[in-house]
């Protein structure tokens, strides 16, 4: 077929967190190139079920690159070789006929494997719970236009807020650091007047939680930003450092 390719999938299978995992290799034939990578996995799973085997477990939901549920470390890249896209936005046309594609789960001490390619990213939620919010109760808000915010700041805050919490930054980082994830949220609020009153408390609490949960130390390799499906910028980390140092110095 003209617009179809065949390839091998070398996939990490692990029945449960306790059991040891291993790679299994599967073959997919004549997959149309306009199939998404996850749809290719669906096809594989249908074939496995047909054979009476258990399908490969992987996280996915919206399949349009916004929910952050999908993960997968494909051929050495979180979310695969495409840049600025999540795994669910990856299409088979990115691969070559006859290629062996290695698919692994996110690897980080803070993200234990649940099953096969699925990991537990609850640690990211815990970091957000530590301070990723503006403390005010429903109903107490003033008029939406009461505080003018410069378009430049609002746009930059929006860029930072685009983080989908998928954990690719942690998966990409050789240190297993969640700095880009934390920095994105801290930056969003640092850039907006709404976030100012509790900026110091927030940055300290979120960083402390990140450290407590066993994420690594940032060494500025920049792999996180390079692999981020939403192009969250490395400058956010510098802003986080700045916020943190200034908060600590004023203690």
């Amino acid at each position: 077929m003209d617009n179809a390719i065949s390839f091998k999938l070398k996939i990490w299978r692990q029945a449960s967190p306790q059991e040891k995992g291993r790679f299994e290799t599967y073959e997919l034939r004549d997959i149309p190139t306009d199939t998404s990578f996850l749809e290719a996995l669906d096809i594989l799973n249908e074939q496995l079920i047909e054979k009476g085997e258990e399908p490969v477990a992987f996280d996915h939901d919206c399949r349009e690159g916004i929910c952050g549920m999908c993960s997968l470390y494909i051929n050495g890249h979180p979310h695969g070789p495409a840049t600025g896209a999540t795994t669910c936005q990856l299409y088979v046309r990115r691969f070559r006929d006859g290629e062996t594609i290695t698919v692994e789960p996110w690897r980080s001490a803070a993200f234990p494997v649940i099953k096969d390619l699925m990991v537990n990213r609850n640690a990211l939620d815990q970091i957000q719970q530590a301070g990723g919010y503006v403390s005010f109760n429903t109903g107490g808000a003033q008029d939406a236009n009461a505080i003018p915010i410069s378009k430049v700041d609002a746009d930059e805050a929006m860029d930072s807020a685009s983080c989908i919490g998928c954990g690719a930054c942690v998966a990409a980082c050789k240190n297993g650091s969640a700095m880009l994830f934390v920095a994105a949220k801290v930056s969003q609020f640092a850039l907006l007047p709404q976030g100012k009153p509790e900026a110091k408390r927030r940055v300290k609490a979120m960083l402390a939680k990140m450290d407590e949960l066993g994420f690594g130390n940032c060494t500025n390799t920049g792999a996180c930003a390079a692999e981020c499906p939403k192009n969250i910028k490395l400058s956010n980390i510098s802003r986080l450092n700045r916020e943190f140092v200034s908060a600590k110095c004023r203690d």
């Binding site: 939406a144 410069s150 609002a154 805050a157 709404q194």
Partner: peptide, 18 residues
């Protein structure tokens, strides 16, 4: 109003308003 107070970065005009 609620969402702006939460820090939702809505699009703005150069004048700073929504």
């Amino acid at each position: 109003d609620q969402c702006v107070a939460q820090g939702v970065p809505f699009a703005r005009e150069y004048g700073g308003l929504l």
